[in-house]
Design a binder for these strands. Structure first.
Length: 515
RNA sequence: GGCCCGUUCGUCUAAGGGCUAGGACACCACCCUUUCACGGUGGUGAUACGGGUUCGAAUCCCGUACGGGCUACCA
């Protein structure tokens, strides 16, 4: 493909930077996926960096969880907090001391300033300046003249405060009237007027950087060439552009791509939507250790990683053809960031299940063996014979949209049904039919070969002899073996169940039907 | 409120100035199947609105409406 190479003219390096606040939602995984595909296409590096600059929001175990999710989805980074490269450390909390010097440099160059306002000062500022036409006043060029900072205070006052260790933050000083324009790989030219933007905090009072400073410094030091992130970051892009300009030069800035949002039924997809509408929103189950709240994951819901990747890739991208099913290799070959849409995409769970169904159908019984076995075991069904399990999977996979559907579709092969759907048999049941089944057992006992076709033939033969329509006997046989009106063709079931088990189930059912 | 992004069937989308606006999910009907599905065939269904530019506009421009995002010492 025609690749617009990074101005640094180095290898392509992309990164994903989740915050360990718990859970990894659809949008997050899609960002990783696009990063991953782009890196692989260009023989580049894919980096995982952890955004943990706000320790108060850190949730124990979230980092490991993210790694587990990426592992499952097959999107393992080349450099990550657990598998380091040459640009570590990768946790921002471990990089803390790096950021201050850049913030100080900005102050020295006149692009940023110290601000000594307390949270109460800020709160008061917001209430005094709040009006009907301005519901959320910003700390901007008009307001900064009225606050306690290195612009309003004298140099000696500022020095004294700093020497005394006064709590302070460093804010960017937004230029008065400048147009910031940059190129986005998905949306083209985007521009902002700086006079409408506020003086964002770059370095917090605890010495930690905000995302704005960290993302620029890290991307520079880690030589990131392309930066993909969600559209919700677009409004703060001008801050990052300005920082690049002041600190490292625009020519070294990565190429940006702001990905469209994944929408739920009401706006940006949230984890609440999952519980509300009954579909998973995280890659894997996530239980918040503080609240014990469980958010369902695609993996546990019964999705194959191939399907998950596939449906995610198509949520906001397509290759221009009518193809919808893509393997990882095909995605790697055909994906292009330029073809990603700029509009948000609403997530449709029905379509997601369709993708999974298609992938289940594509897979062989052998490929499905391990995941299905795991699910069955989770439901107290312990298959002992892999070959047998594989045959049952092969027989029923067309009727399963989710891996969890295999529980209902195969359990009767392993556990004889106790409760039978007698209601659908009894109304048409009679002694003639009971007689037929008793005799059919004998036929089975003498069967010369045990396969579905032969079994069906002898079944029909006997029915004709007895003057009963074979069709009227098939449903009862099914209920005898399966317990209800579902499952694959009944003689295939007989074949797999075997002579002895089939006989047993007929006997059991006859006692139920005649009551 | 301000700023930014967006707008093709209910949903995901194709069509980059020129066929009757194509496909998929969902829905409906029929076929297949004496179970439930799969599968097959067909059907309902869209260019937000108003102006321009052009021989010609879903496509380019402007405006309006609507939707979404951001507006924290969160990311």
């Amino acid at each position: 493909m025609a690749l617009s190479l990074h101005p640094m003219n180095k290898k392509v390096r992309v990164r994903f930077a989740p915050s360990p606040t718990g859970g990894l939602h659809l949008g997050g995984v899609r960002t990783v996926l696009y990063n991953y595909l782009f890196a692989k296409q260009n023989n580049g590096d894919f980096i995982l960096r952890i955004e943990d600059t706000d320790q108060s929001r850190y949730v124990a175990g979230a980092e490991e969880y993210i790694m587990d999710c990426l592992q499952w989805a097959g999107l393992v980074p080349d450099e990550s907090p657990v598998k380091g490269g040459n640009y570590g450390p990768y946790r921002q909390s471990e990089r803390k001391k790096l950021y201050r010097q850049y913030a100080e440099q900005l102050v020295a160059d006149g692009h940023a300033y110290y601000a000594f306002d307390t949270p109460e000062d800020l709160e008061q500022m917001r209430t005094t300046f709040r009006t009907d036409t301005n519901p959320s006043p910003q700390y901007d060029r008009a307001v900064r003249e009225k606050m306690r900072n290195s612009i309003t205070l004298t140099a000696t006052e500022v020095k004294k405060l700093l020497d005394n260790g006064a709590k302070h933050v460093i804010r960017i000083k937004m230029p008065t009237h400048e147009t910031v324009t940059f190129h986005d790989m998905i949306r083209g030219e985007v521009s902002f007027d700086t006079s409408l933007l506020d003086d964002k905090v770059l370095l917090k009072a605890d010495g930690m950087p905000t995302y704005h400073l960290a993302v620029v410094v890290d991307d520079y030091l880690m030589e990131i060439s392309h930066a993909f992130r969600g559209e919700e970051w677009l409004p703060s892009a001008p801050v990052h552009i300005l920082l690049w300009k002041y600190l490292f030069g625009l020519e070294k800035m990565p190429l940006w791509a702001h990905l469209p949002l994944i929408l739920g039924p009401n706006g940006k997809l949230s984890k609440r939507d999952g519980a509300k509408y009954g579909f998973p929103v995280f890659a894997m189950n996530w239980t918040d250790p503080n609240t014990n709240e469980l958010v369902e994951g695609f993996r546990e819901k019964g999705f194959l990683p191939e399907a998950f990747i596939n449906l995610l890739a198509l949520l906001g991208w397509n290759d221009g053809s009518e193809q919808e099913l893509f393997s990882r290799e095909e995605l790697q070959e055909k994906f292009s960031i330029e073809r990603v849409h700029s509009g948000g995409a609403r997530f449709d769970y029905e379509k997601a299940k369709w993708f999974n169904h298609e992938w289940i159908k594509r897979k062989s019984g052998n490929e499905l063996l391990a995941p299905v076995k795991e699910i069955l075991q989770g439901n107290a069904i312990i298959p002992t014979d892999d070959l047998f399990l594989e045959k049952t999977i092969e027989l029923v996979k067309d009727r399963c949209s989710l891996l969890t559907d295999f529980v209902q579709q195969t359990s009767f092969f392993f556990i004889a049904p106790v409760e039978l759907d007698t209601a659908s048999v009894k109304p048409k049941w009679n002694d003639g039919k009971a007689d037929f089944f008793n005799e059919f057992k004998t036929v089975l006992g003498n069967a010369s070969s045990w396969d579905a076709v032969t079994l069906e033939n002898s079944f029909k033969e006997l029915a004709t002899q007895k003057n009963i329509k074979p069709g009227e006997l098939q449903l009862p046989l099914r209920v005898m073996l399966v317990g209800g009106k579902f499952g694959p063709p009944v003689f295939n079931i007989v074949e797999l169940l075997g002579k002895e088990e089939t006989g047993k189930r007929i006997d059991y059912a006859l006692t139920k039907f005649s009551i």
